[in-house]
Design a protein around this nucleic acid. Structure first.
Length: 116
DNA sequence: TGCTCGGCCGCAC
DNA sequence: CGTGCGGCCGAGC
């Protein structure tokens, strides 16, 4: 369960996220949201995401969006694969900075950051 | 299996 | 404000 104090803090974190998102384009946001909608255990291709956000041919741009997302581990981009079945690139292990964001999130909320 | 070109979005110049 | 270039890609050859 969540205490009131914790809850408040949680909201603060969420607001922080919204704030961060707002400085990016709608396209990016849509991509991230689409990722969040992927059920645990399932995978989507970059193309499917591109279609979902209204630009079926912008799979590449989708990749850019995921690569630039401020909450790398928070968004399950590991569930996004290439349409040829390969994993493609994954910069989570390289994006250590963003990993810190996640750790901070976990610390402040006391929850697992990967929303699964 | 591997290379090339096409197409879309952000960002640096 | 225009132009060019690169990216967690896709499709074609």
């Amino acid at each position: 369960m969540i205490s009131e104090k914790n809850k408040k803090n949680h909201i603060k974190i969420l607001q922080n996220i919204i704030k961060k998102m707002s400085k990016y384009s709608d396209f990016y946001k849509k991509v991230w949201i689409a990722c969040l909608e992927i059920p645990a255990g399932k995978t989507l291709t970059y193309k499917q995401i591109a279609e979902k956000v209204g630009s079926p041919k912008a799979a590449r741009a989708v990749g850019t969006a995921l690569a630039n997302n401020p909450f790398a581990p928070l968004i399950p981009c590991h569930r996004v694969i290439r349409s040829d079945g390969k994993l493609g690139g994954y910069s989570a292990s390289g994006g250590l900075k963003k990993k810190q964001v996640m750790l901070k999130y976990e610390k402040e909320t006391g929850k697992n950051a990967s929303l699964d």
